[in-house]
């Protein structure tokens, strides 16, 4: 019987949810924080042949400490290959070799479009955010996009203020119209309350599983669009003992993941 320790924190559960979306042999482009932890949990459990890369140029790095940026010094020694943006974003990603990309956003909408550019009006923004960086090409070109977001009616939106990174844009057929692979795109939206997946027909995010401690009702109320609920909606499986062990003993012994609690991931 699978053990589920009950002393986990929400960011650990979210990292495990991310890990479970990664298949063995997937090539995964990761940022720092959740993506790296999720991909590494997968690699240490069910997906030992998953391969990671960072947009800055490193492929199959063997970091000896948690990387704090995608250009971190620890991504250099031991990597299988190092190039730059043209190699990773062009030769690997644009050429179609990357299966999974992890993205987070200040705002995410029901079609999985992500805003990391501005809150408010573009010319006179309330808040200027960092911009696309690698997010737009990753969202455009990987096969499956995993999105991490806070679940409230401000961070999730019927429509984002600015589409920095395409999800399904304005719905069915839109990706194809723009020359993007129709079958690629947002795969799961992992929040601090639930895992949402995307309907094949409508391309809208729907509720697949709700995390322990919340409920279908609460998730629906925290979502600013008319959230559809899966027929077989159920509780998210809590972190398993093997996942937690990898996270705490191998990947993050100082438990830096706790900083996400301070950012609202509770």
């Amino acid at each position: 019987m699978t053990e589920h320790p009950n002393d986990y924190i929400k960011p650990e559960l979210m990292a495990c949810c991310g890990a479970r979306e990664i298949n063995d042999k997937d090539r995964v482009i990761v940022g720092t924080g959740f993506p790296t932890m999720a991909a590494n949990i997968a690699k240490h459990t069910h997906a030992p042949n998953a391969m990671m890369m960072q947009e800055s140029g490193s492929y199959d790095a063997i970091p000896r400490r948690p990387a704090l940026s995608v250009g971190d010094p620890c991504l250099n020694p031991g990597a299988a290959m190092i190039g730059g943006l043209v190699e990773i974003m062009g030769m690997f990603l644009q050429r179609g070799w990357v299966d999974v990309g992890f993205l987070s956003g200040s705002q995410v909408d029901k079609f999985g479009n992500i805003n990391t550019t501005v809150i408010g009006n573009y010319d006179n923004p309330k808040s200027r955010l960092p911009g696309s960086g690698g997010a737009n090409p990753i969202g455009s070109l990987v096969k499956r996009v995993l999105i991490i977001a806070l679940h409230d009616t401000r961070r999730l939106a019927e429509k984002v203020d600015f589409i920095t990174t395409p999800g399904y844009i304005d719905g069915p057929g839109a990706r194809k119209k723009w020359g993007l692979e129709e079958d690629n795109g947002p795969w799961a939206l992992i929040t601090n309350k639930a895992v949402l997946r995307f309907d094949n027909e409508t391309k809208e995010a729907y509720l697949a599983t709700y995390h322990p401690g919340t409920s279908v009702d609460e998730v629906v109320k925290s979502t600013p669009w008319d959230l559809k609920v899966s027929d077989d909606v159920h509780e998210t499986e809590p972190p398993r003992a093997d996942e937690i062990r990898v996270l705490r003993e191998v990947l993050d012994p100082n438990r830096m993941i706790k900083i996400y609690e301070g950012r609202g991931y509770v």
Binding site: V86, Y122, S132, A135, P137, S140, I163, T164, K177
Partner: peptide, 30 residues
Amino acid sequence: YSNLSLPMMLMAGALGMPFLPTKDMVGTDL
């Protein structure tokens, strides 16, 4: 721009080409 299109623009500059096609940025507010 983005971290694909901008490096490609520099690459085009380095190779003496006037422009390059890229597959990103489409369908977005960029």
